[in-house]
Design a protein around this nucleic acid. Structure first.
Lengths: 244, 244
DNA sequence: CGACCGTTTGATAGTGCTCAATTCAAGTGG
DNA sequence: CCACTTGAATTGAGCACTATCAAACGGTCG
């Protein structure tokens, strides 16, 4: 079922008074430009855990900005083997994969109850023509995604399991910290299987690594509650790739 | 040394009479718009094998369209571990990674003598505002790159060595065929090491796989000259991921 | 409280890596 | 023109890392 087609539609809410605006929109717009932006967000959707924002093959109409919650994006090959391509949190953009063919090339599913702003793509194109800062911002968002994926290719192509998990956790806390959360504690919103899929590992390997890092005194692991007890050593593990 | 700063500058040549235009530019432009496009390509550069188009950290000024030859893009972590992120051939675009930070996030090096058109980015932004088709094309190019990289993540995260090599070869011949070359014969422009880096494998593994596929009668391998003797079985190997 | 899904842990196997030697191709200079 | 050098590719042997299969445990939510 596609939640985008049967949304728990929230009352249309404006970017103009959104605290996350600086995360997903360009900074320093004039007030009349911000007013224009409010027309971009055609609707805000509430997703329940497990709801799909879009599915592979769905017609592309909008890109999405996460307002709250946690979204997982993935692609699958014809045989059903799945690869998680990203985990998006507040202020992050998803759905850019749909522009090329006007159809989405993968799924986006909420990992917890979430709120998402749908940014109607055609209107966005029009507006980027009128507001150069908006256009440049759009390019930057896409470029950032390309750079991020280059980093994932490096991780998947050259790092060992333990290095991958360290990099994953450090990346997560960094993003959470940028949003005002703790830099050492986090609650994972995804299963070991989903982490494994993202990192190119099996869930058992992920589980074993959590246990090992706990024994080593680097992490405290209580289910999905993780505390980074020794950030320096976790970074050292991530950077072992470097030492060689 | 950065060839972009000391190019074997070719006489400025126009897109208007370029046969590859449909590959890197939007189709169906009016003649006056095509005339505008000619001002985009600030210069055409000749690269000798081994020359860098840009290096990690270089200031970003332009994106590049390959006119002839073969380019390799890569990223490296602080320790020097390298990941090849792509191989670009005629009509393909590179350099989009530089938009976010105004600096490139990796290297681009010619694998053979090549010609490249530099598309000045600031001018491109201006022009995309004036020509909606151009703007949409730019978004599509970036979106296509994002989709391609999702596919690479799937490959690196979930496919076995033999499946990866099969996918790589089939992708190469498909692109070559689209440019009028044979659909069964190709000359690799890169070393086993570079293929390995791209596919997340060691060069010995790549070499062994070539030998195995040759013994199996699927390929004929003479150094970098490859003939696909049994395309159907090669596809079957790529799709083994599917069968499970 | 019981069922179920996710997680942990163990034993074993397999894939691809490491280290090392050899072969091959293409220059380069005497 | 041939010996020599150099970088790339091939091949072998042994091993490390991660996957696989299997069983038990634990938390959560009807």
């Amino acid at each position: 079922m596609n939640a985008a087609l049967s949304p728990h539609a929230a009352p249309a809410v404006a970017c103009s008074n959104c605290k996350l605006r600086d995360l997903c929109m360009p900074a320093g717009l004039a007030t009349d430009q911000i007013a224009q932006m409010d027309q971009l967000v055609t609707r805000r959707m509430r997703l329940k855990r497990g709801d799909a924002l879009f599915r592979d093959g769905d017609a592309f109409k909008a890109i999405y900005a996460v307002r709250s919650g946690f979204i997982k994006t993935s692609v699958a090959n014809a045989g059903g083997r799945e690869q998680v391509t990203g985990f998006q949190m507040a202020g992050e953009i998803l759905g850019l994969d749909g522009i090329v063919t006007e159809h989405h090339h993968g799924d986006a599913v909420a990992l917890e109850d979430s709120e998402v702003c749908a940014i109607h793509y055609d209107r966005l194109e029009t507006m980027t023509r009128e507001i150069p800062a908006m256009q440049h911002h759009m390019h930057k968002v896409m470029s950032r995604e390309i750079v991020r994926e280059h980093g994932m290719m490096l991780l998947l192509g050259s790092m060992r399991a333990e290095e991958r998990l360290a990099a994953f956790l450090l990346n997560l806390v960094k993003r959470l910290q940028a949003r005002g959360f703790s830099g050492s504690e986090l609650v994972l919103r995804m299963t070991r299987d989903e982490i494994g899929s993202y990192l190119g590992l099996k869930l058992e390997t992920v589980s074993r690594l959590f246990s090992k890092l706990a024994v080593d005194g680097i992490l405290e692991v209580r289910q999905r509650h993780i505390r980074i007890a020794d950030s320096r050593r976790l970074q050292a593990i991530e950077q072992e790739a470097v030492a060689l």
